[in-house]
């Protein structure tokens, strides 16, 4: 999957590129409006991660307009420190697929990117396979060794979030905010994640799945590939 990351802050850009490449994306970068404009005019991307405030002759919303005017099929994820709701609405009105406010969890970024790419791949039956696990996101169905697994909505969301970030430590904060929305202040109550994970593990084990959800003590959880 080919991504374009448009972000003017070098430190953040480098971290994001590292992370996205680790997550097996082909990732190109642009640090200014002009660079980004040139790249979107020349190449096709599956998804563009777009910062709104950019140096140069335009901002992220202008790039978004260009993409839409060119009839690009690329998904657009806006990433901005401008939590201004009007920006968010304008962005989504202009045809962006999603909006993420800085700072965000890397795992959340990945999860959103996967969702966008999944939604954009119309042809074929997109599915996620992980070890003995098979998920059909379109139908929200989960199979363990060909047996259907019944999950609650939140358990399913949790599983999908873990599957989007295999072999990465997902912090409790990232999981909590993914499940309850990033406005939620869960600093005082992480206990609910524990409950959901316990239930998910139990259901997986009942169907004979391996125990690949690891607890990283005090930090979070990890979907182990070994």
């Amino acid at each position: 999957m080919k991504l374009l990351l448009v972000e003017d802050e070098p430190a953040l850009r480098n971290t994001l590129v590292d992370y996205l490449r680790q997550s097996s994306y082909v990732c190109e970068v642009a640090g200014s409006f002009e660079q980004a404009l040139e790249k979107i005019k020349l190449y096709d991307y599956d998804c563009v991660v777009l910062d709104l405030t950019l140096p140069g002759a335009g901002n992220g919303l202008d790039l978004l307009r260009t993409l839409k005017a060119d009839g690009s099929r690329a998904g657009v994820l806006i990433v901005s420190a401008r939590a201004a709701l009007d920006d968010r609405l304008t962005g989504l009105d202009l045809g962006a697929d999603d909006y993420l406010t800085k700072p965000f969890h890397l795992a959340e970024l990945n999860s959103r990117l996967r969702a966008i790419i999944r939604r954009r791949q119309f042809q074929g039956q997109p599915h996620i396979a992980f070890r003995d696990l098979l998920v059909w996101p379109e139908q929200a169905e989960v199979f363990v060794r060909e047996q259907a697994l019944t999950l609650t909505r939140k358990e399913y969301d949790l599983l999908l979030f873990l599957l989007a970030n295999p072999n990465r430590v997902l912090t409790k904060e990232a999981i909590a905010e993914h499940l309850c929305g990033d406005a939620v202040d869960v600093a005082d109550s992480f206990d609910f994640i524990y409950t959901h994970l316990k239930n998910l593990r139990k259901k997986l084990q009942e169907k004979g799945a391996d125990n690949y959800i690891r607890t990283m003590y005090g930090v979070g959880y990890k979907l182990s590939v070994e």
């Binding site: 802050e9 430190a11 953040l12 971290t15 994001l16 590292d18 992370y19 680790q22 405030t53 420190a81 401008r82 939590a83 406010t101 800085k102 700072p103 965000f104 969890h105 890397l106 795992a107 990465r168 430590v169 912090t171 990232a174 990283m216 003590y217 005090g218 930090v219 979070g220």
Partner: peptide, 29 residues
């Protein structure tokens, strides 16, 4: 914007740091 950007950098870097094998050391983690 100016405050959220460094915060975003800090958060992203720390998340990356947590992925390193050295984090098996509970004290460091």
């Amino acid at each position: 914007h100016e405050t959220q950007t460094p915060l975003a950098i800090m958060q992203a870097q720390l998340e990356q740091l947590l992925q390193l094998p050295e984090m098996a050391n509970p004290q460091l983690a």
